[in-house]
Amino acid sequence: MSAPALRRGPRRLRELSVRVGWGVIAWVVGIAFFLPVLWMVITAFKPESAAETWPPKFIFTPTLSEFHLVFSGMGPFLTHSVVATVGSTILVLLLAIPAAYALSVYPVKHWRDGLFFFISTKMLPIVAAIGPLYVIALHLHLLDSIWLLIVLYTAMNLPLAIWMIRSFMLEVPSELLEAARLDGAGRIREIGGVILPIISPGLVSTALICVIFAWNELFLALNLTVTNAATMPMFLISSVPQEGLYIAHLSAAATVASVPVIIVGWIAQRSLVRGLSMGAIK
């Protein structure tokens, strides 16, 4: 009678230790993965002289001087990045919501082809067309213009956004849409009054992913802008001087450039997971 009762104690202990063991492994992995980001932030608070030492310094008097320097030159870049990111994300949503509706709720005849056409444009390497793109922009007087970036970032994010929003729309129970039809709601009303309120968490994750990709984009900005539309990644590159000590300055600039997206991403983690799994596959 007492044997099982006696055995229960050690077993629970073993289960607990296994659990703690996995926890420790997870923490080690997590910290190791985070280390480069942590090191970036630490270096950003160093004075330039303490940044390039051997062995690396872990204890030093933190200073904000590099941040001051970064902030002083960042203004226009930040503005361009915000305008390009916000502008393209809004445009993406405006275009993607009706398109996703047409591909899901009352689908057009060849909705599969439509869907695959959109995603296939993502597979065409934009780099292949960079020369002609430059020439086209030149002729349209759009070179070094924030409008050009908005237009291109919208095209860059539109396919993924359509796929994501479509998958969220498919989750709206069809009964609900039928009820709306019986109640006399037209198409606009159906989208605005019934569908959008339900999929708004999905829209947030879609917007978030568009923001991440637009904010971080370098290739197009580097090739097609100089000063009037140069974005934060360009600012980052410009913070690497040809000579002299620059590691602390670079780290401060990298921290400042990355922090907005990191913070937003941290806050909206769950939303990010939803968006990335495209809500659909079951």
Binding site: P173, E175, A179
Partner: peptide, 8 residues
């Protein structure tokens, strides 16, 4: 409707 289809 079977599942009521109330607007959430």
């Amino acid at each position: 409707f079977q599942n009521y289809a109330l607007y959430p």
